[in-house]
Design a protein around this nucleic acid. Structure first.
Lengths: 275, 275
DNA sequence: AAGTGGTCTAGACCACTTT
DNA sequence: AAGTGGTCTAGACCACTTC
């Protein structure tokens, strides 16, 4: 059955008992346009990527930690270093890990300068971006409103945590934000924890609650400030504001945060790069 | 002087006269921490990428056309196919080319379904996105205002083309847009050309004026509709609108378009993915 | 059957960091 | 000196498209 000298060896290796869950490349009998070309095919490096992602999700390697070297992973998965390399390339492109030449590959974390502005796109028109002051207005638990439950993919009966906060840039109230989190994932989250914690909220979620946000989708609109909002942000009634609705996802494309921000854009703007 | 058997051969090849402009890896004499580690170093695949980009920019291969195969390019540049492959991988990630398995690699073009919504991020809240109707309000030539000249990196004395248009989604005025273009690059651009041309404006720019937009940076704010704007968009005075200021760039990070859009976000939203 | 991009391997050497 | 990721090569085979 040996029809090559390189590729087939790999397939046999991948088929052995060390990693029975690896799906192997389709080896179709020649000439057979056999019925149903298997739809479950996936390249080896994608399978390796999925396995590494599982280890990230399970916490085998925690945010900020060093993961095994490419050589080690290649031995572990019984594939070549090049295949592991391609898997890690994609994980790095997805911002799940960070490569550092000479040192190794690290699990990405929200506790880093470079990660700070990935989810905070409001930039001062002039000067450099600073991290805002944070004022927690309210924290409470309640049953999920229908719309919140729908977007978080939970039941309406389930408990959610609601947070309202104001962020100040250079002392000026600039962002009014309302956040909904699934209660089951953020059990010990209280106003005290939020107030005492300095640094980005996603850092807190990652370190204290084991939930890491890896991507988000935003819907942006322009709205007018009503009386409640204008009082909280200390602006005139009917001031035009950016409304930013965000759904954040963790591993497995699972939605774990719903957020609505109202941004004052007198001296700031939302920055977006189209590539 | 032969201290290896693989790598050094490549370097010698790269050093030959076929491509004198290729910068070769630093080959430092062993033991010599020689003064001034050359700061102009760049990996081979980056040099290949730059060479291919030059050919794209010069029009050797035009938008929509097939570029030479990886094997051909490898022969032409006297490097391995793998190195060409990595260069093209990055060009594909930058949306400068599109790979199609079994067919080849094509120069990206704005005349494609998939490219339509790369620069148009306003999405209907419900239903599927359709391409808007276009109404040209005004086209004129004038000397560049100071701010426009600054952003387009031209002189204030230089001529620019100003376009004002309204876009209708499902018959409703939704986007009021003002566009400034460097006069020298868009000589024959008239209201007639714009009106008769069906399809995306960037397609027209690419096909008729040889200027291809490859990326853009946007600044988004919320503003209130004044009397002029509310009349043009047929909305109430002081309606909150999205203001989207865009600078678009062509090859070599050269700014070639300035655009300001005012978006009605009653039934639409600006969609953004944070990765 | 031939040609294209896509995957996978194996091995060499380079650049950078730490010991 | 040893270990890490980064670059480059060479060759095999696979998947897809076209002739």
């Amino acid at each position: 059955m040996l029809d090559g000298n390189g590729g087939i060896v790999v397939k046999l290796r991948a088929m052995n008992t060390v990693l029975p869950n690896l799906i192997v490349n389709n080896v179709q009998s020649p000439g057979g346009s056999a019925a149903g070309s298997s739809p479950t095919f996936s390249p080896l490096y994608q399978q390796i990527k999925a396995l590494i992602t599982q280890s990230l999700q399970s916490g085998e390697w925690k945010p900020g930690e060093l993961i095994p070297s490419e050589v080690e992973l290649a031995l572990r998965f019984k594939v070549s270093q090049g295949t592991v390399r391609k898997a890690i390339d994609e994980l790095a492109a997805d911002n799940l890990v960070v490569r550092r030449q000479g040192k190794g590959t690290f699990v990405a974390t929200h506790h880093e300068e470079r990660a700070q502005f990935r989810f905070l796109r409001l930039i001062p028109d002039e000067g450099v971006a600073g991290y805002p002051e944070n004022k927690i207005v309210e924290v409470k638990r309640l049953r999920a409103p229908a719309e919140v439950a729908r977007l978080l993919d939970i039941k309406s009966a389930d408990s959610v945590i609601f947070i309202q906060r104001i962020q100040y840039f250079s002392g000026l109230a600039t962002i009014l934000e309302e956040i909904w989190l699934p209660g089951v994932l953020f059990k010990g989250l209280t106003a005290e924890r939020l107030i005492e914690y300095k640094g980005p909220m996603y850092g807190l979620f990652e370190s204290e609650f084991g939930t890491r946000m890896i991507r988000a989708a935003e819907k942006i609109r322009a709205v007018s400030a009503d009386t409640v909002v204008s009082a909280l942000l200390q602006i005139s009634l009917n001031t035009a504001l950016l409304s930013v609705e965000r759904v954040s996802y963790t591993y497995g494309d699972k939605p774990v945060e719903l957020r609505r921000g109202l941004y004052v854009t007198e001296r700031h703007h939302y920055k977006n790069e189209l590539n």
